[in-house]
Measured scan of single mutants.
Amino acid sequence: MLYVKVKTEDGEELVLEVEGMTEDEIREELAKAGFKIEEIEVYEVEP
């Protein structure tokens, strides 16, 4: 499983499960949803 931890400019932290997306695609999708991203951390969790 691939997850991203996202910190927004307003200090909110989100953890999202993503599969088959690049970091650029993740940033693009979050921007479309109205999030202003300060930091993204991508990590993989073994089942």
Rank of each mutant, 00 (worst) to 15 (best):
K32H: 06
L30V: 03
M21V: 06
R27E: 03
G20L: 05
G11Q: 02
M21W: 08
V42R: 05
Y3I: 11
V15D: 03
L2K: 14
T22S: 09
T8Y: 08
R27P: 00
E17F: 15
L30C: 05
F35K: 01
V42N: 03
E13D: 06
E19A: 11
L16F: 14
E12M: 13
E13I: 14
A33S: 07
E17P: 07
G20P: 04
A33F: 14
D24M: 10
A31P: 02
E38I: 15
V45A: 10
L16D: 00
V4H: 00
M1E: 02
V18M: 10
E29N: 09
K32I: 06
M1Y: 13
V6R: 00
G34R: 02
L2H: 10
V18E: 00
E28H: 10
F35A: 01
P47F: 09
E46R: 10
G11N: 03
D10Y: 09
T8L: 14
D24F: 11
V4T: 01
E46A: 11
I26G: 00
F35D: 00
A33H: 11
D10L: 07
A31D: 04
E13P: 03
E41D: 06
K5N: 02
E29R: 11
T8R: 06
G34T: 02
L2Y: 14
T22R: 05
L16I: 10
K36H: 06
Y3H: 06
G11I: 01
V42E: 02
E17W: 15
V18H: 01
E23R: 11
E13M: 12
R27Q: 03
M1A: 09
I40A: 03
I26K: 00
G20C: 07
V42P: 04
E39N: 12
M1D: 02
L30Q: 00
G11P: 01
E17G: 07
L16S: 01
M1Q: 07
E44Y: 14
V18Y: 14
E38L: 15
A33K: 13
P47Q: 08
K7Q: 05
L2E: 01
E19L: 12
K7P: 03
L30W: 05
E38D: 10
E28A: 13
E9W: 13
A33E: 04
L16K: 01
L30P: 00
E23L: 15
V6F: 13
I40T: 02
K36T: 06
I40P: 01
L30G: 01
G34I: 02
I26Q: 01
P47W: 07
G11H: 02
V6Q: 00
E9L: 11
M21C: 12
V15H: 07
K7E: 03
M21D: 02
E9P: 11
I26D: 00
E13Q: 07
A33V: 06
E39Y: 14
R27T: 03
E17H: 14
I37C: 07
G20A: 06
T22K: 04
L30T: 01
L2Q: 07
E12I: 14
E9M: 12
L14N: 01
F35T: 01
K36E: 04
L30S: 00
I40Y: 07
G34K: 02
M21R: 11
E13H: 08
E44C: 14
K36M: 07
V4C: 05
T22L: 05
K36F: 06
K32V: 04
T22P: 02
E44A: 13
P47N: 08
E23P: 11
D10P: 01
E9T: 12
G20D: 05
Y43I: 08
K36Q: 06
A31S: 10
K7V: 10
I26S: 00
P47L: 09
G20S: 05
V4D: 01
G34C: 08
M21H: 07
L14I: 12
F35V: 04
I26M: 04
E12S: 11
E38C: 13
L16W: 12
Y43T: 06
G11S: 02
G20V: 04
L16M: 10
E19Q: 13
V42I: 14
E17T: 13
D10Q: 08
E9S: 13
E12G: 09
P47K: 07
I40N: 01
L16E: 00
V45M: 11
A31I: 12
K7G: 03
E29Y: 15
E28N: 09
E23G: 05
V42M: 08
E19G: 10
G34H: 03
Y3E: 01
K32F: 06
K32T: 05
V18C: 13
E19V: 13
V45D: 06
E25N: 04
I37K: 06
E12D: 08
R27H: 03
L30H: 00
E25P: 00
E46T: 10
V45Q: 09
V18A: 03
E12T: 12
A31F: 11
A33P: 01
P47R: 07
L14A: 03
E13V: 14
E25L: 05
E41P: 01
I26L: 07
T22Q: 03
A33G: 04
L2C: 08
G20Q: 05
E17C: 15
V45H: 11
K5F: 09
K32C: 11
E13C: 15
G20K: 06
E39H: 12
A33W: 15
E12R: 14
M21Y: 10
K36N: 08
L14F: 15
K5V: 10
T22G: 04
L14R: 05
I26Y: 01
M1W: 14
E25M: 06
L16V: 05
K36V: 06
T8A: 04
V6Y: 09
F35G: 01
E13K: 03
E25T: 05
K32L: 08
E44T: 13
D10W: 11
K32D: 03
E25Q: 10
R27I: 09
D10I: 05
K36S: 07
V4Y: 08
E19C: 15
V4G: 00
E13Y: 15
K32R: 12
D24K: 11
E29H: 13
I40H: 01
L14H: 06
A33T: 05
P47G: 08
M1S: 09
K36P: 03
I37G: 06
A33D: 02
I37V: 10
K7R: 12
E25S: 05
E23T: 08
Y43S: 05
I37T: 06
L16Y: 12
V6L: 08
E41Y: 15
E46P: 13
V18N: 01
T8V: 04
K5M: 05
M21S: 05
E41N: 08
P47E: 06
E12C: 15
E25I: 04
V6G: 02
K5G: 02
F35R: 01
V42W: 12
E23S: 08
E28G: 07
D10V: 04
V42G: 03
Y3D: 00
E13F: 14
Y3Q: 04
L30F: 09
F35Q: 01
I37E: 05
L30N: 00
A33Y: 15
M1K: 15
K32E: 03
A31M: 12
T22M: 04
D10F: 09
E46W: 14
E23F: 14
E44R: 13
A31W: 09
K5R: 10
G11K: 02
G34Q: 02
M21E: 03
L16G: 01
K7N: 04
E46H: 13
E28S: 10
E39P: 02
D24Y: 11
Y43P: 02
L14S: 02
E44G: 09
D24P: 06
K36R: 10
V15Y: 13
G11F: 02
E39A: 13
E19I: 14
L16Q: 01
G11C: 08
F35P: 00
G11D: 03
T8W: 07
V42H: 04
E25W: 04
I26H: 00
E28F: 12
E17D: 04
E12K: 14
E19W: 15
R27G: 02
G20Y: 09
I40S: 02
V18S: 02
I40D: 01
L2I: 11
G34A: 02
I37M: 10
V15L: 12
E19Y: 15
L14Q: 03
A31N: 06
V15E: 05
M21T: 07
M1T: 12
E41V: 12
L14V: 08
G34V: 02
Y3S: 04
E23D: 05
E23I: 15
G20W: 12
K36G: 04
E13A: 05
E38A: 13
V6P: 00
I40V: 06
F35E: 00
I26P: 00
E41L: 13
Y3L: 11
I40C: 04
L30I: 04
G34Y: 03
V4I: 08
D24S: 11
I37W: 10
E38R: 15
E44S: 13
E39G: 09
E41T: 12
E39K: 11
E41M: 13
M1H: 11
E13T: 12
F35L: 05
M21P: 02
L14D: 01
E44N: 11
Y43C: 08
E12L: 14
D10G: 08
D10K: 08
G34N: 02
E39V: 12
M1G: 06
V15T: 07
V42S: 04
E38Y: 14
D10S: 12
L2D: 01
G11T: 01
T8K: 05
E46L: 13
E44K: 11
T8D: 04
Y43G: 03
K5C: 07
D24I: 08
E38Q: 13
E44M: 13
G11V: 01
L30A: 02
P47I: 08
D24T: 09
V6D: 00
E17M: 15
K5I: 10
V6I: 12
E41I: 14
E39Q: 13
E17V: 15
E39F: 13
E29W: 15
A31C: 10
E41A: 08
R27N: 02
I37L: 09
M1F: 12
G34P: 03
P47V: 08
I37P: 09
R27W: 08
E44F: 13
L14T: 03
L16N: 00
Y3F: 10
E19M: 13
V45R: 14
K7H: 08
T22N: 07
